[in-house]
Amino acid sequence: MNEALLELEGVSAGYGRLPVIRGISFIMTEGERLAIIGPNGAGKTTLLRAVMGEIPLMRGCVRFEGEEIGTLPLPARVRRGIGYCPAGRRLFPELPVRDNLELGAHGEGRRERERRLEQVLAIFPRLHLLLARRAELLSGGEQQMVAIGRALMGGPRLLVLDEPSTGLAPRVVHELYAALAGLGAGRLAILIVEQNARAALRFAARGLLMSGGEITGAAEAKGAGVPHFETYLGLKREPACETPTRA
């Protein structure tokens, strides 16, 4: 059996009293790339926020590397090895790019921070020239690179990305996914939530389709499972993909 890296079992979560997502279960293994796609309001972001501990679980549990992490606060989950790029990027606007990145490894010594910074710059060479620039002055694509870079600075085994392509021009999206595809040499698992279904499914080995707070379909083969446009948007009613979700 392949080691489970992240395991969700019957997770329900939401805001106030009513759950937005219900009974979500899936397993990710080491180095796996999983995309969660679906229309606005399907509960994708809520799912990530529950995984990261931004909102409490109402039911179910979240395990990372075999240990229950469902009650840990967000920073503790990050320190366990889950890198997180929240929706909206959440950079430190008035700090320079270098500080933004280094704060992702604030618990490490200076030498280790420098080493990781070099690694991140190797992935996003464009950031080299921008190290001294304040984050708020970057373009959307550059900001997204900093956000991913900052998450990588913590040395994660799992990277969680919430809609990285939002507001980016198609060319920039392509560039971003090209960089993501080269990450971690198969060791780093990536969980990504996207509306840009094609980009996400070209990148991920597996996709889960969410709607109405539940997982309603899955696409297994890389690149092959891009649901038809109209089906994805719900204009036609037919099963999104051949393989049903594991319950």
Partner: peptide
């Protein structure tokens, strides 16, 4: 800088561990 980071984006700071 950690203090300024929390001031500028609490969620970003938490996401940085």
């Amino acid at each position: 800088k950690t203090i300024r980071a929390v001031a500028q984006s609490p969620l970003g700071a938490a996401a940085s561990g």
